[in-house]
Design a protein around this nucleic acid. Structure first.
Length: 277
DNA sequence: CCTTGTGTTCTCCG
DNA sequence: CCGGAGAACACAAG
């Protein structure tokens, strides 16, 4: 979404007020006639820093969370028309599911669309931002996420290793697809109790987190059904999926075991009964 | 019925 | 009875 940086937001159109949380911070008023001066990410949350007004001392931020089907889409000048051809992926971007439109002075637009409406946006002040950031664990691809940090985090956790990986308080940003792929890469069964992993297994899971997430980022994410990035482009990681969505198939690695599909931590979970111990 | 991210509520245990 | 941990539930719509 870097293309919206420093562009002037002229107008914010709200088609569905229900996707805005924390309405006390007057969403439109906080955004119109201002610019986004910085954009960051923490876990699965995007943080747009909003330009300060002349007399203001405190900063405000636009937070965006995509849930399952939420997406931010950028249209440049020539594409920013509402004609039939603009919305090539009609299910994702139909008028019906486009909830907020940011119109920039530069003639560009940014859309917040969400079919299932698990996603939301909100404007928060510095204090509220601090509160929300406090709920996130380590950024798995940062240098500060070391093996010893990971050992300390997973130590004594009585939950399953899959639930542990999905818990944003421990490691931020891992969802269901990557949790399954990480555990396959590590050769560890999703239903294992986290604290039961040997020192060696913890190390392998740690390395697998880095490896899978790096590869996913390089390939710009996973398009399993209809995910697209802000340019409307699909992610390329799908071709590297080894267990997710392969329940009932033969394992690509051992060519012997079957990929089982079970339920762990309330989520559909795929693993190889032969490769993962 | 299934799918998932996350915020809330419930339950268990010391 | 309190607090924390972890599990379970609720939500949405295709």
């Amino acid at each position: 979404m870097g293309k919206v940086l420093n562009k002037l937001v002229l107008r914010v159109e709200i088609n569905n007020v229900n996707v805005i949380r924390n309405r006390k911070n007057s969403f439109k008023k906080a955004l119109e006639r201002r610019r986004f001066v910085n954009i960051e990410r923490r876990g699965k949350m995007l943080i747009f820093e909003i330009e300060k007004g002349k007399k203001e001392t405190k900063r405000y931020f636009l937070l965006a969370r995509m849930g399952m089907t939420g997406r931010l889409v950028y249209f440049s000048e020539e594409d920013a028309l509402w004609g039939e051809n603009s919305f090539k992926n009609k299910k994702s971007f139909s008028h019906k599911h486009c909830h907020i439109i940011f119109k920039f002075k530069e003639d560009a637009v940014m859309l917040f669309c969400d079919i299932r409406r698990f996603g939301y946006m909100e404007v928060v002040g510095e204090k509220e931002l601090e509160d929300r950031l406090a709920h996130f664990g380590s950024e798995p691809l940062s240098d500060s996420f070391t093996l010893s940090v990971f050992r300390n985090t997973i130590k004594n956790k009585k939950t399953t290793v899959k639930a542990f990986l999905l818990n944003q308080r421990y490691v931020a940003g891992i969802g269901n697809i990557y949790a399954d792929e990480i555990l396959f890469e590590a050769g560890v069964r999703p239903c294992r109790v986290a604290s039961s992993l040997s020192a060696e297994e913890v190390k392998v899971v740690y390395k697998s987190i880095k490896k899978i997430l790096r590869k996913a980022v390089v390939n710009r994410g996973t398009t399993f059904s209809d995910y697209v990035d802000s340019d409307g482009k699909e992610g390329g990681f799908k071709k590297y999926l080894k267990v997710y969505g392969r329940g009932g198939e033969k394992c690509l690695n051992c060519k012997a075991g079957n990929i089982k599909k079970i339920r762990v931590a309330g989520r559909g979970t795929c693993f190889c009964e032969y490769c993962q111990k």
